[in-house]
Design a protein around this nucleic acid. Sequence first.
RNA 1: UGGGGAAUAGUGUAACGGUAGCACAAGUGACUCUGGAUCACUUUGUCGGGGUUCGAAUCCCUGUUCCCCAGCCA
Length: 567
Amino acid sequence: MTTTDSASGVDFIREIVAEDIKTNKHGGKVVTRFPPEPNGYLHIGHAKSICLNFGIALENKGGVCHLRFDDTNPCKEEVEYIEAIKRDVQWLGFDWGKHLYYTSDYFEKLYEYAVQLIRLGKAYVCSLSADEIRGYRGTLTQPGKESPYRTRSIEENIELFKRMRAGEFADGTHVLRAKIDMASPNLNMRDPAIYRIRRTKHHRTGDTWCIYPMYDFAHCLSDSIEGITHSICTTEFENHRPLYDWILDTLGVECHPQQIEFARLNLSFTIMSKRKLLELVEEKKVNGWDDPRMPTISGMRRRGYTPEAIRNFCERIGVAKRESMVDIALLEHFVREDLNKRTLRVMAVLHPIKVVIDNYPEGEVEELECVNNPEDANMGTRKVPFSRVLYIEQDDFREEPPKKFFRLAPGREVRLRYAYFITCVNVIKDEVTGEIKELHCTYDPETRGGSAPDGRKVKSTIHWVSAEHSIEAEVRLYDHLFTKADPCDEKDETDFKKFLNPNSLEIVTSSRVEPCLAHAAPGSRYQFERLGYFCVDTRDTGNKKLVFNRTASLRDTWAKVQKAEGT
RNA sequence: UGGGGAAUAGUGUAACGGUAGCACAAGUGACUCUGGAUCACUUUGUCGGGGUUCGAAUCCCUGUUCCCCAGCCA
């Protein structure tokens, strides 16, 4: 695990933690938690939080990080999400050990805390409707009005709250509210609701409860119950901290964790809102939560990302409070960096064009030795069959080569990687359409393996496969999900879908890959030489079908040249 | 015209009164049997205006801009 505190300073949260350890604030303990709501899949923004929370626990002796499902709203939560979240955290490389918790496990305790709050005269049952409560709340600039139910006696409140629990009231008829200050400039302190009635089956507690605690009430107390020392969350909860502290102080609990806020991750050309991601899934704009175009952990895993790459990314982006938008190129950099070191190189031709080597003996096949990974000699070599009829990439041939195009062209000699120098001698076209059907070339037998005894050089090396021996595969090329760096930067909340990239998925159906890929394991990763990093799709690869997902393309200087020349 | 936060190269993030650094991106060159990788070099920055100080990204004053909050969501 890479948790090296690189050259310069640590982030402000780690600074606080270090200081607290030094001053023995929590008896020297460090207990953090990652508290997802099981209402969707985890995304790269969650990965940042996971790396932070588990990372801090790992870096400090005796540190622990809990995984706690914040399941206080049964309307939105499902078991499927719980399983997915656990899988994703584990896959990222983190271990909560025995510290797996659910807020719903604390429902009884939380109920008792609520009763205690009532006894203290600090909570009351309010029978205003939701609309009325909103009206009484006031506005950002005007104070709210006190609810007429605010003065109910403690006894009456306890009785009513009991009856709420007993299911005597319909949804929405009553709510338990903290009695704080309707004139507070912080709207969260204007007698926030802390329990509501919801006759919804809970995915874990079933029909046991018909009242459920609100986040503000449940979260701080769950932290306290678990002995959390540092409760790290995102900046939108900063306004909630006074309430977090008020509840714990008012109840006088022994453990009062410190809430610390950091800025959530924004990544260019994608979105990070669980709600919006759900929308894409439900409206079939993508093929599920694990669609390789999604910024979800499961999507990235299916796309071929490695946990190491994601962790390195999370470490590099840092932790701070300012709102920011990280360039998705940085994420892509870290996958390439990791995959470059670890993947087997193979040859695959995405858009094949037939090449006949005129002077190569018909029927002959030779096995040529290819390096598996030039970055790592330990990965060895493999044999790849070569024969008279080959496929090369359409892009690697130009009948009329532009300037700076180094690849194959009529009369030009190039190297077939690990094979021979070939020279294009003829171009066969369809008489009607003019489409290039096949290329005829000659090879130089002296250049076997890829180098010329006479020392002559070629400008380019291209990849190839033997027509007869190669196998067919489907290759899925992905591009950014959105065409706009910040798709949510619009007045209208629904506008983000206008910027969905229509070309985010390109399916190439008749690619030809090296025979060694015939039994490639689902999920295994490769570099297709000169093209990019690809992995075998775990969902759609079957007996008859081989499907590859492009994780990331290789850096392409030629594409840059073309772009610069405007061709 | 309430309250809470935040402003450092194109992007992200350090520097905690003492040389503004790192990564990505961009550019140049070297090398190369991947136009990959690698290596070297380069461009670009402290939100504005005042002040304190020998010295300010850092401290003070002031202005500006951006983000969050009026769910019985989290």
